[in-house]
Structures are given as structure tokens and as C-alpha cells.
């Protein structure tokens, strides 16, 4: 199913056109360019992973797609319409979960449904259903501080899925988890993606994770970030241990090579910033 999707679905869902993002620098009043001339098509229903050196602007790009900030130049469209602000057609999952600590797991999922204006009677049933989908039946009444990191991230995923966005934006959602939990959540996420057919943009630091999850892996340059290359990832079959597939190693090595130069550049850049001028 994965293979057919990537071959047939060529409809553009999100079109990022020549996007530049500057931040104002507080003390000098100058501009700090986080992204410069980013262009990327995200196809309808695809799972796109995004990798790049730290500080290259991945989160910034995700914020732009989410509509939380606007680009300095360029344009982002979703289904052909320019993005002007946040909306429930896009759901975000953050690395630090961002659950409301005063709400139970169930009430956290209900939050998105309230935002969407789902009738009160339907909210709870739907929230339970999505908590079930991420394997949290029985934990509905727990507060976030009573859940493990993996469970919290499941709640966050359930919350984003429950209001049924077309696009799921995920910013290193599994980075804070241990290896086993991460792998089982990766598995579940792929399952959910297969079932729901949502478009996913997934930021990660892990090359393995990027290759394992993504149908395409977009590699960014060091800051100011651009898209360096988009690598098509396709396997003959996703059955069995994908990580043992020789092609997995090839993709992995290719992306690693692309990243290596950028990471080196990023390190040099950081040193330059660290040395005080004048």
C-alpha cells in the first residue's frame, strides 16, 4: 500500500514556494535569516520526513506551515489556498507533548474537539475512540503527570488525530523517548497513517527514523536553511525487518553523506556566532 501511494499520489497538498524567514534581532535591530528560499512540494497523503543540522530552521518551517508565524518572503499554500493562520486542517505534535496538565488524557483529546466545535455529546465518545487507537484505553482519567513519556506522546497524537486534520505536522515527536518506546510508536504511527491516509510532515534528528518512516526524506542545509535534496525512499516490501534491508543502509548512507557537510558547516557557523565581534 505504501508503495502504491507514493507512485500514484502526485497531487500537491502543501506547496512551499521560495520561502524566506527572518527574525528580528533584539539588541542590534538587524535581521537574522533562519530560512532562505525554501521550496518544497508535499504530496497529498505522503509521509515526508525532514532532516537537517540543528538550528537550520526545521521547526521554523513547521511553524510557518502551521500558520503560527508568517513568512518574510515567499508563499505557502495548502490545497492551493495561501496559509494565513493556524487551522484545524493541520494538527501539530510537539516534542515536549504540550498537553494541558490540568486536563486528564480524555479532556486533553476533547480540547481539540471543543476547538473544532464538535457537539458536546459526541466529544467524549470520539475522544475515547482515538485514545483507543493509540492504545490508551483505561488511561482516560489519568492526568499527564501520571503518564509515562511515551503515553503522553500518545495522548498528544490522539489529540491531533481526533479533530481529523488533513495534515499532521510532527516536530521530533519521539526524540525524548527511549529506543523501545520510540520504535513501537513509529510502528503505530505508520499503522495510523496507513489507515487514515493523512499527509504527514515529520521532523527528526535520526537518519534511521527518517528512512524508516518517510516515503521521501527532505534534507536541509545548515542555516539559513534551504532544501538540499529530497531523497525518494522506496522498498520492494515493507514486510519483515526493514532496517535489515540492504537498501535501508544505502539510503541511510546517502542521507548521512548529505548531512555530514551541512553539520560541519553548522558547527563552523556556531563558532562564528559565539566569538564576540569587535
Amino acid at each position: 500500500m505504501t508503495a502504491t501511494l507514493s507512485e500514484t499520489a502526485t497531487l500537491t497538498k502543501i506547496d512551499i514556494r521560495n520561502v524566506t524567514k527572518d527574525f528580528e534581532v533584539r539588541d542590534t535591530g538587524g535581521a537574522f535569516t533562519a530560512l532562505r528560499g525554501v521550496s518544497l512540494d508535499v504530496r497529498e497523503g505522503e509521509f515526508l520526513t525532514l532532516v537537517g543540522p540543528s538550528g537550520c530552521g526545521k521547526s521554523t518551517l513547521l511553524d510557518l506551515v502551521a500558520g503560527l508565524t508568517g513568512p518574510t518572503a515567499g508563499e505557502i499554500t495548502i490545497d492551493g489556498t495561501p496559509i494565513t493562520g493556524p487551522g484545524l486542517d493541520r494538527g501539530i505534535v510537539f516534542q515536549q507533548y504540550a498537553l494541558f496538565p490540568w486536563r486528564t488524557a480524555l479532556a486533553n483529546v476533547v480540547f481539540g474537539l471543543e476547538a473544532k466545535g464538535v457537539p458536546r455529546r459526541e466529544r467524549e465518545g470520539r475522544a475515547r475512540e482515538y485514545l483507543g487507537l493509540v492504545g490508551l484505553t483505561g488511561f482516560e482519567e489519568r492526568y499527564p503527570h501520571e503518564l509515562s513519556g511515551g503515553m503522553r506522546q500518545r495522548v498528544a497524537i490522539a489529540r491531533s488525530l481526533a479533530f481529523d486534520p488533513d495534515v499532521l505536522l510532527m516536530d521530533e515527536p519521539f526524540a525524548a523517548l527511549d529506543a523501545q518506546t520510540r520504535e513501537s510508536l513509529q510502528e503505530e504511527l505508520l499503522g495510523i497513517w496507513g489507515k487514515t491516509g493523512k499527509t504527514v510532515i515529520f521532523i527528526t534528528h535520526g537518519i534511521d527514523e527518517a528512512v524508516y518512516l518517510g516515503q521521501r526524506v527532505a534534507v536541509m542545509t545548515s542555516r539559513p536553511g534551504r532544501i538540499k535534496e529530497v531523497v525518494d525512499v522506496s522498498f520492494d516490501s515493507r514486510e519483515g525487518d526493514l532496517r535489515a534491508d540492504p537498501r535501508f543502509g544505502e539510503y541511510r548512507h546517502h542521507i548521512w553523506t548529505l548531512l555530514r557537510d551541512e553539520v560541519a558547516a553548522a558547527v563552523v557557523q556556531e563558532r562564528k556566532v559565539a566569538v564576540p565581534r569587535g
Binding site: 502551521a66 503560527l68 493562520g85 493556524p86 510537539f94 504540550a98 476547538a115 479533530f163
Partner: peptide, 15 residues
């Protein structure tokens, strides 16, 4: 981050 998360779900200032 909680404010960001709520804003991403389209909440206006009052809500």
C-alpha cells in the same frame, strides 16, 4: 508551548 499548542488548534484570544 501550551499557548502555541492551543493557537495551533485555532483558538482566538478570548478562548
Amino acid at each position: 508551548l501550551l499557548i502555541k499548542s492551543a493557537r495551533s488548534m485555532g483558538l482566538g484570544p478570548i478562548r
